[in-house]
């Protein structure tokens, strides 16, 4: 998991048209797409909307010149969190349908309904679109640029300062974790080494995690002291320089917002026969 942190960071340092865009426009377009798909009513209308967003994502991904493996790896990491909730929907009724038609009867009085399957599929599509755009955003934008972008868009100073420190120390502890792992490996300890007794491995890992917690506590103390030395107080905030938005960024913002807004509107108008 920690190594994934460095893997994600590596992707953000690549060069492409999408990578070089201002973080602000990427954040806005990403959230516009998320809001658009979430706001699309729970109906078959979601299918063409999600399809169009998938094509949009594909175009952006190709422009970002990232490997599909990057997307697949990150999707696999995130998918279990949403998949469980979506799977449960298949067995339960929901408020979006009036009539439920069982398509399979299971033991313990469980039923699979046609409408619930449709609802779960819509939910899955919404979930996939949302996380796919988050994956795109975080794979093409350096984390510090994301923070600066969010700050320039008006994220309160309390959040930017705290998130900034979190970002900094996630990497400090990432490196600390690496060093601990190297120290264990140097002395032939492997958590999955079956030649070592199970209880011994468990105990060693518990000590290691405990050490990491203690070190993080101590690091926190030292950092706070250093902050006080530099005048930390109520007015402290992260320094974010003013940065102009280039025409290229404006063009992307315009196109992105047009896709995000027009897609659900056009499909909705066509569903009611106005287009």
């Amino acid at each position: 998991m920690i190594e994934d942190l460095f893997f994600i960071e590596k992707q953000t340092y690549r060069r492409s048209l999408i990578h070089e865009l201002d973080a602000r426009v990427k954040i806005v377009v990403c959230f516009a797409v998320i809001v658009a798909i979430v706001a699309t009513p729970y109906s078959p209308l979601v299918f063409p909307v999600a399809g169009t967003f998938a094509v949009f994502l594909l175009v952006l991904w190709l422009l970002a010149r990232l490997s599909p493996v990057v997307y697949a790896k990150r999707l696999v990491m995130i998918l279990p969190f949403g998949l469980f909730i979506i799977l449960v929907q298949v067995f339960v009724q929901n408020p979006y349908y009036a009539v439920f038609t069982p398509i399979a009867d299971l033991p313990l009085g469980l039923h699979i309904y046609r409408e619930s399957v449709e609802f779960a599929t819509i939910l899955l599509l919404k979930f996939l679109v949302c996380i796919s755009f988050i994956i795109l955003l975080s794979s093409t934008t350096k984390v510090q640029d994301l923070l600066e972008g969010a700050g320039r868009l008006g994220l309160p100073a309390e959040f930017t300062l705290t998130l900034g420190m979190m970002i900094r120390y996630v990497y400090v502890f990432g490196y600390m974790y690496r060093k601990i792992n190297e120290a264990l490996a140097t002395r032939h300890f492997g958590p999955f080494d079956s030649r070592l007794p199970y209880r011994y491995r468990l105990r060693t890992l518990a000590y290691t995690i405990g050490t990491l917690f203690i070190r993080s506590y101590e690091q926190g103390e030292r950092t706070y002291t250093a902050m006080l030395c530099r005048g930390y107080g109520r007015e402290s905030h992260l320094y974010i320089r003013k940065k102009p938005v280039l025409w290229r960024d404006c063009a992307f913002l315009g196109c992105g917002l047009a896709v995000a807004v027009c897609t659900p509107v056009i499909f909705w108008l066509s569903s009611i026969g106005l287009v």
Partner: peptide, 16 residues
């Protein structure tokens, strides 16, 4: 590492 707590060098130097 005790003293540098901002995401970029510039932001850290600007903290004080």
């Amino acid at each position: 590492d005790d003293q540098i707590f901002s995401p970029t060098v510039e932001q850290d130097v600007a903290f004080g």
